[in-house]
């Protein structure tokens, strides 16, 4: 796991590694559609870094830091949802 981010009032968020900044994406409506087709089995997983909560600490996770290990990445609709 990477460096420990500072805990501030701003809500930290992550993003793709090697992708243009979000403000560039806002200029046109196209770029967000572009990345949608990146997923295919047998192809590299898009690298990303994201803030995380882990065992009482705020930390940060970068996918490529876990090369050499099997990784399960799970998305879910939201905290406190029921399923």
């Amino acid at each position: 796991m990477a460096e420990k981010p500072k805990v501030g009032c701003a809500r930290p968020t992550g993003g793709l590694v090697g992708q243009p900044e979000a403000r560039q994406e806002q200029q046109t409506s196209q770029p967000t559609k572009e990345v949608r087709t990146m997923i295919q089995v047998g192809k590299p997983a898009p690298d990303f870094a994201a803030p995380a909560y882990h065992k009482g600490e705020f930390t940060s996770v970068k996918l490529s830091d876990h090369l050499g290990k099997w990784v399960v990445l799970c998305f879910y609709p939201g905290d406190f949802t029921f399923v």
Binding site: I39, P46, F75, P77
Partner: peptide
């Protein structure tokens, strides 16, 4: 969005689960 699980309309992510091997391949 990059993983194809973000529902823009709802503003949340679907239940996506990806198995990524030690080479970083899905």
């Amino acid at each position: 969005t990059a993983y194809g699980v973000y529902d823009e309309g709802a503003g949340v992510e679907n239940r996506g689960r990806f198995i990524i091997d030690p080479d970083g391949v899905i």
